[in-house]
Computed example of a mutant assay.
Amino acid sequence: MHRLRAERRPADEPPTAPEQARLWHVVLSVAGPVTPLSELRAGLERLAHDHSFFLTARYAADHAEIRYWEQARDLHDAAAIALRLWGEHKATAKLPPWEIVGLEVVDRATYHQRVAEGFAGPPPQLGGVYPY
């Protein structure tokens, strides 16, 4: 039987800090059966109220795109949270039974670089729920 010895650090050395959470820009695309626009808009507005980093949603009767900021340790965690967003809020926000059909997650620096270069900039109307 081998015993692992705990590594000791000098008394004057601070403990290693846990990884800091970072901001990730998320674009989540969902689609499914045609849903009345008034119901869909109301559901997306409830989702916006529930999700603290909500930025913008665009929608049509059979698809929607949600853009927001997610705070997470790394891309893997941010993507995992994003992939759960629709399902976890489906009942409380009364969202349609749509599936996720697209996901983009980029770090804050990449997002700002894209905006500065004129590529994948923010939608024309920020902050709210709008039809396409």
Results as ranks from 00 to 15, higher is better:
81 I>T: 15
21 A>P: 10
66 I>Y: 01
47 L>I: 05
1 M>C: 05
127 G>N: 07
37 L>Q: 08
33 P>R: 12
104 E>A: 13
81 I>K: 14
99 E>V: 12
88 E>A: 13
127 G>V: 00
13 E>N: 09
90 K>N: 05
91 A>L: 15
28 L>D: 03
69 W>T: 04
106 V>D: 09
83 L>T: 13
55 L>G: 11
98 W>H: 06
120 A>M: 11
97 P>C: 07
10 P>H: 13
34 V>G: 08
99 E>H: 11
119 F>N: 15
106 V>L: 12
6 A>F: 10
2 H>P: 01
36 P>Q: 04
37 L>M: 07
53 F>L: 13
47 L>G: 02
62 D>F: 03
10 P>T: 09
125 Q>A: 07
8 R>G: 10
69 W>P: 00
5 R>P: 03
52 S>D: 14
47 L>V: 06
96 P>V: 04
17 A>E: 13
5 R>K: 07
117 E>V: 01
55 L>T: 06
59 Y>T: 04
118 G>D: 02
102 G>R: 09
45 E>L: 07
50 D>T: 14
8 R>V: 13
75 L>Q: 12
91 A>S: 14
30 V>Q: 03
43 G>F: 03
93 A>I: 05
10 P>R: 13
20 Q>S: 12
104 E>P: 01
79 A>H: 07
84 R>N: 14
46 R>K: 13
49 H>W: 13
117 E>M: 09
